[in-house]
């Protein structure tokens, strides 16, 4: 990464000169297999001798408990949720991601703010407003967009953690039951991600394949990236 580049003005009160690490983002829908891939990539990278740090949504120590509570209640509005997630993101960026990059780590990020924007827009947020909120965000070295169609996502859910309220978008009730709501909600998210592909320069990775095939693909891409000076 070296010279940090931001989507907006970054952190005007903080001069960050050199970030020798690499910021690698995995994006994509719920159930697409991001965390499985991150665990495999982490192991491989550490075997290769890289120092690795990983992060993901809602892992900020500042907001974790409060956001969890808010999601368990029934007064959390869409706008408030959007800003709460932005707080989580900013805290992790300033206090985890940037320090790790400064120390030369490879940071594997399970989702980035693209996911939050996609969710906000599906919930009716103004797309430009949501993008400007993240003007402090660092541009990653690469974003791999793990892309799978809705039937594949459904199969992963069935064989994995099952359907849940938030991943089915039940807060905006896309349908009157979890299964249908999941399908509608995830296909809307898919549209948002697809629309962001060019805007944010995602590298699309076919995630309808087996976990091992996806991993081989990602590993080959990462090898090339890491070989660059």
């Amino acid at each position: 990464m070296t010279e940090p580049v931001y989507y907006g003005v970054g952190f005007p009160y903080r001069i960050i000169q050199d970030l020798p690490g690499k910021l690698i983002v995995l994006e994509g829908n719920d159930g697409v297999g991001r965390s499985t891939q991150i665990a495999m990539l982490r192991k491989w990278l550490e075997d290769e001798g890289y120092a690795v740090s990983d992060t993901g949504l809602r892992r900020s120590t500042l907001t974790q408990a409060g956001l969890e509570n808010a999601k368990n209640g029934h007064t959390l509005g869409s706008l408030t949720m959007s800003l709460f997630y932005a707080t989580d993101f900013a805290d992790r960026l300033e206090n985890q991601i940037i320090p790790a990059l400064k120390a030369g780590f490879i940071v594997l990020s399970d989702r980035y703010f693209y996911s939050t924007i996609a969710r906000d827009v599906v919930r009716g947020a103004d797309p430009q407003w949501a993008r400007k909120v993240y003007g402090f965000a660092l541009k990653p070295d690469v974003t791999y967009y793990l892309r799978a169609d809705v039937p594949t996502l459904v199969a992963r859910m069935v064989h994995g953690r099952g359907f849940n309220y938030w991943e089915a978008g039940m807060d905006i009730r896309c349908a009157d039951n979890l299964y249908d709501s999941f399908c509608v909600y995830q296909s809307r998210l898919l549209q948002e991600f697809d629309a962001m592909t060019i805007e944010y320069g995602f590298e699309t990775v076919d995630a309808c394949r087996s976990a091992m095939d996806i991993f081989d693909d990602l590993r080959a891409r990462l090898r090339k990236l890491l070989a660059r000076p």
């Binding site: 952190f11 009160y13 500042l62 800003l83 709460f84």
Partner: peptide
Amino acid sequence: FTPTTFSLLQAT
């Protein structure tokens, strides 16, 4: 807090 997280949390 950093200035950014302080600002975002108050906006929340």
